[in-house]
Design a protein around this nucleic acid. Structure first.
Lengths: 183, 183
DNA sequence: GCACCTGGAGAACGTACGTTCTCTCCCGTT
DNA sequence: AACGGGAGAGAACGTACGTTCTCCAGGTGC
């Protein structure tokens, strides 16, 4: 099996298991079982579990933001693009196996003990916030609007994860609309 | 040493360690060391770690909501009481050792593996949401306002925890004010 | 055909940790 | 003074898991 293929399989297994059950409760042996890649190879690809965790978060970051941008790009009107973020959240929340925001969960689990994880979470959230800010300014709205919209989105992610409901997305979208109208 | 005193000491130690470093990375031996209560007594009081975790979350829930209500009760005007929630968040975020919302963190760590923890997190969030809703109706505002305010508060907690900043509280408060003005 | 390398399966190792057990000391009672 | 019971210190036990090692099969180049 090609090294690149093995790497993908490992990352696929890691993402499903880490996201679904939490990081610390998944052992390297579980990853081996789910990926079909032997421990030896696994450790050649990722010399330690923490590096696999980082690779998991990093790949997921690219995909997550890519999917969001792709969805938003279907809308041409700047104002609509901004609200589309919340529509996408609703889609995401409704997906089978949705279990909240991977970065918020990872931060709760490892933020206090792993600087590298904490740094990656901050980077991801900053990138999401920056993206939101770019949509705000593209819509010709005051930059100060980005912060509150970000908080609404974060609150929706957390609440959707805990309550296993898609409703927070609609609430956040409505509130976002009101904020946009009020300025 | 009185049993009730030992219990308090254990819970004090558990709260400091669990909240500060996460639950899974704190061993029962750490609790013993920090509390000065022997393992034997510790297990008499809490027959398993999970029960200690539950007791930790439960006691913190009472205290957290108590402190919030106390702060809010300093204001007589219903409208002001609503916004005071965000002022209190700002105070909380600025406290030494603040590390985000204990329940959001615990959910990220154990929500997928411990039903009891997940249930307690949902109960805590529901209680907070209900409290917010009671403030909204007491201010004579439409009940539908409670959801968005809740999301703003949750988003602020998460963001303050990750970025170690008090700023999200002010942003959330400002957005809350705009939402209140817009209806 | 044979030496050699690669990779897989899984045993092995070391450590951490939840939980229990042992031993000893201290205190109150008789 | 003798005794019983509770408490503390910490050893012990079992398990889980991150990581490494061993062994062997199978394929490849001479």
């Amino acid at each position: 099996m090609d090294s690149a293929v093995a790497r993908e399989r490992v990352l696929d297994a890691a993402e499903e298991l880490f996201y679904g059950r939490g990081i610390q409760s998944v052992g390297m042996d579980d990853i081996r079982g789910a990926s079909g890649v032997s421990l030896k190879r696994l450790y050649q690809l990722f010399p330690a579990k923490e590096q696999l965790v980082e690779a998991y978060l990093e790949r997921r970051d690219g995909r997550w933001r890519g999917r969001l941008a792709e969805f938003v790009d279907l809308r041409p009107a700047p104002e609509e693009r901004l609200l589309a973020v919340f529509d996408w959240l609703e889609e995401w929340f409704g997906e089978e196996g949705f279990r909240g925001c991977a970065w918020i969960n990872s931060y709760g689990e490892l933020g206090a003990t792993s600087d590298r994880v904490a740094t990656q979470v901050r980077a991801h959230k900053k990138a999401f916030g920056d993206y939101l800010a770019s949509l705000v300014t593209a819509a010709g709205r005051p930059a100060a609007l980005a912060g509150p919209l970000f908080l609404l989105a974060e609150g929706a992610m957390v609440t959707a994860g805990i309550t296993r409901s898609t409703r927070p997305a609609a609430e956040a979208r409505e509130a976002a609309g009101l904020l946009l109208d009020s300025r």
